[in-house]
């Protein structure tokens, strides 16, 4: 559950646990919205390819980097645990 995250359609992200805010790109918003709604991280590349004009290999590489970045700044740390969403 990533219920500590509030993500608007415009890509404005608020982490309720830290009070920090972020601005996401359109595809970043799409990906994080998918995770918040319960999607498995492994399904993200095919979801992105289905919705955007992007090659599967490029999608997979970019998503890996995106998730690494989110993880690095602590956004993906689930509530009450140190368990993180991984690609």
């Amino acid at each position: 559950m990533l219920d500590h995250l509030a993500l608007s359609e415009s890509g404005f992200l608020f982490d309720a646990r830290t009070g920090l805010t972020y601005t996401l790109s359109r595809t970043g918003t799409f990906l994080l919205r998918s995770l918040i709604d319960g999607a498995d991280a492994e399904t993200l590349p095919e979801r992105l390819v289905a919705s955007y004009d992007v090659e599967p290999l490029v999608a997979r590489r970019d998503i890996e980097q995106f998730l690494f970045r989110l993880s690095d700044i602590g956004v993906l740390r689930k509530d009450d645990s140190d368990e993180e969403v991984t690609a």
């Binding site: 309720a16 646990r17 009450d80």
Partner: peptide, 10 residues
Amino acid sequence: GGVTVRDRKL
């Protein structure tokens, strides 16, 4: 300036 946060551990 500040913002309210919500954290179960806190």
